[in-house]
């Protein structure tokens, strides 16, 4: 468990980092928190010839909450985001999901943006950030571009970033009023990747009817599974047990989970149906509680 040899680069500016990625392309990997990449390097599953460390790039650790929304820089630590009062108040789904990511020692190093770039379909943050309709700001040799998360995840471990591009930050829009959210997962142990996980965001109108809903499932497909279509059956009425259960059943039918070391596809469908129902009800209850 010793990494194969590699060249280490510690650029001080975004442009310098982008130039390194442009020069080395497929042979380079970006290091932010390193909590997924470094173990894979030690197992020689990842064998980059060049490692581009972003930790010395000034300003990338930004965490800014404003009227427009939330900006989370590429090296902002999960623990920092999780502990931020503005995040807890306005994007509680994010804090709730981060709290399930591994353990504090790992979250002290791990980054939110890094977890998105790692694009593990079973992980918490890709699903939670997609449910919050996030956008990635990427930098390449030709400048910056924005990639909505809806277009970002292209497969397990794969994203819309080119190998010469760098994810600079995640932007999350401000949620509408009377919005509640919930992250629920089944994990074999505290801190494990979930067997299945669900992010639900429900916004109610002034009369308590569901006005807007976002639902994303982790470990249900090769990418975070956007179940908005199934969830929008709830629009226009109060979210109740029956309606939420119907969405759960529809999601379980639409999901394409796999058999792996954590459980079978059959088990995952069963669990998804339950978690979707519970998450939608909990999010609606929280939305009501805030109105």
């Amino acid at each position: 468990m010793k990494s194969a040899a590699f060249a280490y680069h510690a650029p001080a500016a975004v442009g310098e980092a982008a130039a390194l990625l442009a020069a080395h392309g497929e042979r380079a990997r970006v290091l932010a928190g390193g909590q997924s990449l470094v173990p894979l390097m030690h197992r020689r599953i990842e064998r980059p010839e060049h490692l581009v460390d972003l930790n010395r790039v000034a300003g990338l650790d930004r965490l800014e909450a404003g009227p427009e929304g939330l900006r989370i820089g590429a090296t902002a630590r999960q623990r920092q985001v999780e502990s931020d009062p503005a995040v807890a108040a306005r994007w509680p789904l994010l804090a709730e999901a981060i709290a399930e990511v591994a353990h504090p020692a790992i979250r002290n190093r791990g980054t939110v943006v890094g977890s998105l770039c790692n694009a593990d379909p079973s992980a918490e943050l890709p699903s939670a950030a997609l449910a919050l309709e996030g956008t990635i700001v990427a930098a390449g040799a030709d400048g910056e571009r924005e990639i909505p998360l809806a277009d970002f995840f292209t497969g397990p471990g794969e994203t819309a970033l080119s190998r010469s591009e760098l994810a600079l930050e995640l932007r999350l829009p401000a949620p509408p009023p009377r919005t509640g959210s919930a992250w629920l997962e089944l994990a074999r142990r505290g801190g494990d990747l979930p067997v299945a996980g669900v992010a639900a965001v429900v916004s109610l109108d002034a009369d308590g009817r569901c006005e807007r809903v976002r639902l994303v499932c982790a470990n249900a497909a090769p990418v975070p599974l956007d179940c908005r279509f199934q969830a929008e059956a709830l629009l226009g009425a109060a979210v109740d047990e029956e309606g939420a259960a119907a969405v759960g059943a529809a999601v379980a039918a639409a999901a394409g989970p796999v058999d792996d070391y954590q459980g079978s596809a059959v088990e995952r469908r069963r669990v998804l149906a339950v978690l979707v129902r519970r998450a939608l009800l909990l999010a609606a209850e929280r939305a009501g509680g805030r109105s």
């Binding site: 353990h103 074999r188 142990r189 505290g190 801190g191 494990d192």
Partner: peptide, 8 residues
């Protein structure tokens, strides 16, 4: 290989 953790 899942060992129990303190949190379990």
């Amino acid at each position: 290989y899942k060992l129990p953790k303190a949190t379990d």
